[in-house]
Nucleic acid binder design. Structure first.
Lengths: 112, 112
DNA sequence: CGGCTATATACTCGTCCGCGTATATAACGC
DNA sequence: GCGTTATATACGCGGACGAGTATATAGCCG
């Protein structure tokens, strides 16, 4: 298990991260919100922790987990080359679309 | 194979997408750039196509593939709640960091 | 100390998926 | 039509990983 992408491929882990995005949570909190068996939560948290997505603080018997942004930043950075396909000026996208569907200007429609 | 996240968990598929981000490419082009066996490329392209990441155009015997942005937009959108952890004003992040590491102001260091 | 709560780990099982190899389909040029 | 090129599909294998169950660890309170 290496890349940040493989980590967030798991739906439960994404759910955990989304919950932690709003505020830090204990394992019990997560268990309650996600309706998942506790060992499952702990296991996912371990994966997330070892990959640097989260870190934990000790509060008595509880372990409170919080987000660490670095790996997600990495994902965000990977998306960069693709943003031109939707963001900002639609021109680039349209040119791209046009190139693949030549839209013959002023000509008898051949097929559909 | 459902979520966009699962699709881009695969390194070869990310490589394909990155190549296609710069310009459309035939299967042979991809094969050459990525140094992967052709059946592997075709199989990954199939997955990407069925998940809506790419679409193909026919050019004689060649199939030329190009990016379709929608699924990546979805990933981009999912990242939104996390951007506050790094982007824009660092204040939010710092407050977050402070909360977990109280930084007792002016006190004898206990541990570490 | 003893029981309770909170969390982590161990282990087995079934499944999914990428890889490699072989083969099928299809369009080109002669 | 035939050989060749370009791409897709079929199949079997092995490894990885998530789910579930059981158990271990650790800190709390009385």
């Amino acid at each position: 298990m290496e890349s940040a992408f493989a980590i967030i491929a798991e739906p439960s882990r994404r759910a955990i991260l989304t919950l932690l995005a709003s505020s830090e949570q204990s394992v019990g909190d997560l268990e309650e919100h996600l309706q998942l068996p506790q060992p499952s939560i702990s296991k996912h948290l371990r994966v997330l922790r070892e990959a640097g997505f989260v870190e934990s603080r000790v509060d008595a018997q509880r372990r409170v987990y919080r987000i660490r942004p670095e790996p997600l930043k990495e994902v965000d950075a990977w998306l960069e080359p693709f943003r031109r396909f939707w963001s900002a000026h639609v021109d680039a996208l349209e040119r791209h679309l046009d190139r693949m569907n030549p839209t013959p200007p002023r000509r008898k429609r051949k097929k559909r």
